[in-house]
Simulated scan of single mutants.
Amino acid sequence: MATVNLGGNPIQTSGELPATSTKAPDFTLVKGDLSTASLSDYKGKKIILNIFPSIDTGTCATSVREFNKKAAALDNTVVLCISRDLPFAQNRFCGAEGIENVATLSDFREGKFGKDYGLTVTDGPLQGLHSRVVVVIDEEGNVKYTEQVPDIKDEPDYDKALAAL
Results as ranks from 00 to 15, higher is better:
Leu74His: 10
Pro125Ala: 11
Val135Trp: 08
Leu119Pro: 01
Tyr42Pro: 00
Thr59Ser: 11
Gly111Phe: 15
Val102Ile: 06
Ala19Phe: 04
Leu119Trp: 03
Tyr117Leu: 04
Leu86Ala: 11
Val30Trp: 04
Ala37Met: 09
Glu139Asn: 04
Ala71Ile: 02
Asp138Ala: 06
Ile48Tyr: 05
Tyr117Ala: 00
Ile11Asp: 00
Pro10Asp: 05
Gly118Asp: 09
Phe113Met: 09
Gln12Leu: 13
Ala89Leu: 06
Leu49Pro: 00
Leu80Arg: 05
Gln12Lys: 10
Asp123His: 03
Asp33Pro: 10
Tyr117Met: 06
Lys69Ile: 02
Gln127Ser: 11
Gly111Lys: 03
Asn91Arg: 14
Gly7Tyr: 04
Thr22Asp: 12
Thr62Ile: 04
Pro53Arg: 02
Thr3Arg: 01
Thr77Val: 12
Val4Pro: 04
Ile47Gly: 00
Gly8Asn: 11
Gly8Thr: 06
Asn68Ala: 06
Ser131Cys: 08
Phe108Cys: 09
Asp85Trp: 01
Asp123Val: 10
Leu17His: 09
Leu39Ala: 08
Asn68Pro: 02
Leu86Asn: 11
Asn76Gln: 12
Ala61Phe: 01
Ala19Val: 13
Thr77Ser: 07
Leu119His: 00
Val64Ile: 15
Lys70Trp: 02
Ala89Asp: 13
Lys45Asp: 07
Val4Lys: 05
Lys112Met: 12
Glu97Val: 01
Ala37His: 01
Ser14His: 04
Cys94Leu: 10
Ala89Tyr: 00
Gly118Arg: 13
Asp41Gln: 08
Pro25Glu: 05
Val102Lys: 09
Ser106Lys: 07
Pro125Trp: 11
Val133Phe: 13
Pro18Met: 04
Arg109Glu: 15
Leu129Ser: 10
Arg109Trp: 15
Ala61Arg: 13
Ile137Gln: 06
Phe67His: 08
Asp107Tyr: 11
Thr13Asn: 07
Glu139Val: 06
Asp116Asn: 09
Leu17Gly: 02
Ser14Cys: 14
Ala89Gln: 00
Glu110His: 09
Ala19Asn: 11
His130Lys: 01
Glu139His: 02
Leu86Ile: 11
Asn91Ser: 13
Arg65Trp: 02
Gln90Leu: 13
Thr59Leu: 02
Gln90Pro: 00
Glu16Leu: 09
Cys81Glu: 07
Ala103His: 03
Arg65Asp: 15
Thr122Cys: 08
Gly111Cys: 14
Thr13His: 06
Gly114Leu: 13
Leu126Trp: 07
Pro10Val: 09
Lys112His: 09
Leu126Tyr: 14
Glu97Asn: 04
Leu105Met: 14
Asp33Ser: 09
Lys115Pro: 01
Lys115Trp: 03
Ile82Thr: 07
Val79Trp: 12
Ile99His: 12
Ser106His: 09
Ile82Asn: 13
Asp33Gly: 03
Arg92Trp: 01
Val134Asn: 10
Ile11Gln: 07
Pro10Ser: 03
Lys112Glu: 15
Gly118Phe: 08
Ile82Ser: 10
Ala103Val: 13
Ala73Trp: 02
Ile47Leu: 14
Lys112Trp: 06
Val4Tyr: 02
Phe67Gln: 13
Thr20Gln: 14
Gly111Ala: 07
Lys69Pro: 00
Val78Cys: 01
Ile82Lys: 04
Gly7His: 03
Thr36Cys: 00
Cys60Trp: 01
Thr28Val: 07
Phe27Ile: 03
Lys46Cys: 07
Asp56Leu: 15
His130Val: 09
Ser63Arg: 06
Lys45Ala: 00
Phe52Trp: 12
Lys115Gly: 12
Lys43Pro: 01
Leu29Met: 15
Lys23Ser: 14
Ala37Ile: 05
